[in-house]
Design a protein around this nucleic acid. Structure first.
Lengths: 223, 223
DNA sequence: AACCGCTTGTGAACGCAGGAACAAAGTCCC
DNA sequence: GGGACTTTGTTCCTGCGTTCACAAGCGGTT
């Protein structure tokens, strides 16, 4: 049976959300939760949540619900959070600095073991409790720390070059914030996060919903 | 109205990517592009790109390709970028400051007309060329500027309260970076961006792909 | 000990997105 | 002027994700 033959990627993303909610409930001393309540807190459909959870085997008690601590540990195990993940971050402009100082990563088992920037002005500065290192040390740090995840927060022009250096150093997973499509060798997984795309989708939905949907506007014909 | 009954949301997100690539090509003086080249630059399948573009009517020349400037303007029009969009940003911690200073928004027609923070220590400071204002002025600024988009970059605990204030002030679209599921009244569109979720998906894929997939294996040539 | 309500887990149908193959059309060359 | 090549636009199909609805199981109660 191998309780994890394959889990859909969309489900994995939601599991991470459930995990966050469960952690909050556990901190609040909550013992059990129902799928309805958990789904409401996560912003998804209750049936979908149960289906997501079914991918990791039966982990609830019928008539009662899910044991918060148990389910949390189970999800954490499936997501590979038993062991901490070493990450390197390249590019410490505004966005990179924000990522380096973002507490949401460290509390989830992701640790930045190296911060890198090509600009001599940034090298040596301290960001988020770590010292920024020059690009020349990237390969060495990745090898020494066995970092598997690389985060790119550089300008678009140099992102591909950084990607190449990361992959050749041994990084197998890349999270790219630069607005370019990266090409990486097979076996390396790249995830793209484009902040401005999200805004543009919002703008489109707003336009589509009503070119003149003022809440007032009783009279026909806008100007 | 007839030419745009509805465009799938996934297509809209990709249109934003095509638009970025086309802008770069236009700046380079490029006259026409084929779907293959454009798809390669955007990181998608050529057939899928043509299907996406088909939603906005025929806009290419068979045997030649797409006229860069024309297609760019067409997409920009569909995405509602003819007119600039006024946005307000709440929460100027590390992430909020990065967003306020991110050039990728302004160059795409999104302007932050108001930066807000609850902390008196941040009010009055200048971030990204704008002065941070107290939360009390939020309603007034939204009304005066007719801002339609609100960006939340606050801690999770206060995000729902900020969402309520934004919606009651008249904001119809919300981009939420806080790691909580927001509930908003009908007619208000909320998009969630969770940075740590992306990392966790990467960690899972890495774990699933192979607990010990070393890339080296120099001995024994691969045929 | 048996009944009843509540909740999980699963099976099936619907809709959507993605990919591949084919026809239409326009241009370049001879 | 005609043929052939190139490239778009469309259509079909396969697979996935999502949702609804029902059966199975456990706890509490009388």
């Amino acid at each position: 049976m191998q309780s994890r033959p394959r889990i859909p990627e969309a489900t994995v993303a939601r599991l991470a959300v459930y995990l966050r909610v469960l952690s909050g409930l556990a901190d609040g001393g909550r013992g059990t939760v129902s799928s309805g309540e958990l789904a409401s807190a996560a912003g998804v459909n209750p049936a979908g949540l149960r289906k997501d959870l079914s991918h990791l085997g039966p982990c609830g008690t019928r008539g009662v619900g899910y044991e918060v601590a148990t389910l949390r540990d189970r999800i954490a195990g499936v997501l590979g959070m038993e062991t901490a993940h070493a990450c390197v971050l390249v590019g410490l402009g505004n966005l990179g600095s924000a990522l380096a100082g973002y507490g949401g990563f460290g509390s989830r088992g992701f640790e930045f073991v190296g911060l890198f920037d090509a600009s001599p002005a940034r090298v040596g500065q301290e960001v988020g409790g770590r010292v920024v290192r020059p690009m020349e040390e990237l390969d060495e740090v990745v090898t020494a720390t066995r970092a598997t995840i690389g985060v790119i927060a550089t300008p678009a022009e140099v992102a591909q070059g950084v990607c190449d250096r990361l992959t050749s150093a041994g990084v197998r997973s890349i999270l790219n914030f630069a607005p370019v499509a990266l090409t990486a060798p097979a076996g390396v997984d790249v995830r793209q996060v484009d902040l401005s795309v999200e805004l543009q989708v919002l703008a489109f939905l707003d336009k589509q919903r009503g070119p003149a949907t003022t809440v007032l506007a009783p009279a026909g014909g806008m100007a």
